[in-house]
C-alpha cells in the first residue's frame, strides 16, 4: 500500500519539477511565451490548462480501451477540443477582460503539446486515478512556471506584479520584457537557471 502511495505521490510531484513540462520537457511553449506578459494572464492560462488537462485525462483514461489505434489522435483531440471550448466560453462569459487578453491562445490549448502528450504518453495507458494525479501534477507544474515567468516579466516590463506596483515611481520600465523577444529571453534564462539548479542537485536531464 505504501508503495502505491509513493508511486502516486511520485506521479504528482514529477510534474512540478523533475518532468516539469515547460522547463524540462519543453512542451506547451506557445502559451508559455505568449501569455506571460503579466502574472495574471499566466495564472489564468494555467488554470484553464489545469481544467482541460484533468478533464480530458479522466475521460481518455476511461475510454482508452475502446478507441482504435488509427484514430486515437483525432479522438484525443476532439475530446480535448470539447473541454477547451467549454473553458473558452466560460472565460469569455465570466472574465471577458482576461479572455480578451489571452486572445486565441485559449482555443490553442487544444494543440498544446502538454495535453496531447500526456494523453498519448500517460492517460491512454493508465487507470483513471493515476491519470488524474498525473494530469494535476503536470498542469500545476505548468501553472507555477507560467505564473513565475509572468511575474518576472511583469516586474521588469511594467514595474508591477499582479497589477500591484512594486517598483519605485522613477523606475523606467523595460518595454522589451513584455514584447516577444523578452518572452524568449526570460524563458531561456529560466531554463538555464532550472538546469543549473538541477546540476547542483545532481539530477540529469
Amino acid at each position: 500500500m505504501s508503495s502505491f502511495k509513493t508511486s502516486l505521490a511520485h506521479e504528482f510531484t514529477k510534474g512540478l519539477w523533475k518532468e516539469n513540462p515547460v522547463l524540462r520537457m519543453l512542451l506547451g511553449l506557445c502559451p508559455t511565451l505568449a501569455v506571460t506578459n503579466s502574472a495574471v494572464n499566466g495564472l489564468s492560462m494555467g488554470l484553464a490548462v489545469i481544467f482541460t488537462l484533468t478533464c480530458s485525462s479522466t475521460l481518455i483514461s476511461l475510454i482508452r480501451n475502446i478507441v482504435p489505434k488509427q484514430v486515437r489522435i483525432p479522438t484525443f483531440i476532439i475530446v480535448i477540443a470539447t473541454f477547451v471550448t467549454v473553458a473558452d466560453r466560460t472565460l469569455a462569459a465570466f472574465f471577458p477582460t482576461i479572455s480578451k487578453a489571452l486572445g486565441p491562445y485559449v482555443p490553442l490549448i487544444v494543440v498544446n503539446c502538454i495535453i496531447l502528450g500526456r494523453q498519448e504518453a500517460f492517460a491512454s495507458k493508465n487507470p483513471v486515478h493515476r491519470a488524474i494525479i498525473d494530469a494535476l501534477g503536470m498542469s500545476i507544474g505548468f501553472t507555477l512556471t507560467l505564473t513565475i515567468l509572468g511575474m518576472f516579466r511583469e516586474l521588469l516590463g511594467a514595474g508591477s506584479i499582479f497589477n500591484l506596483p512594486i517598483m519605485p515611481e522613477s523606475f523606467d520600465t523595460w518595454l522589451v520584457m513584455i514584447l516577444p523577444p523578452g518572452a524568449f529571453l526570460a524563458l531561456g534564462l529560466m531554463i538555464g537557471i532550472a538546469n543549473w539548479i538541477n546540476s547542483k542537485l545532481g539530477i540529469k536531464s
Binding site: L179, P180, P181, G182, N195, S199, S205
Partner: peptide, 23 residues
C-alpha cells in the same frame, strides 16, 4: 555554451535575439 544553457536554453535566447532582430 555554458552547461546549463546548452540545448533549449540557448535556443530560446537565440530566438529572443532573432526576435529582437525581426523587430
Amino acid at each position: 555554451v555554458p552547461e546549463p544553457f546548452k540545448g533549449a536554453g540557448i535556443t530560446m535566447i537565440t530566438a529572443g535575439c532573432l526576435a529582437l532582430a525581426f523587430m
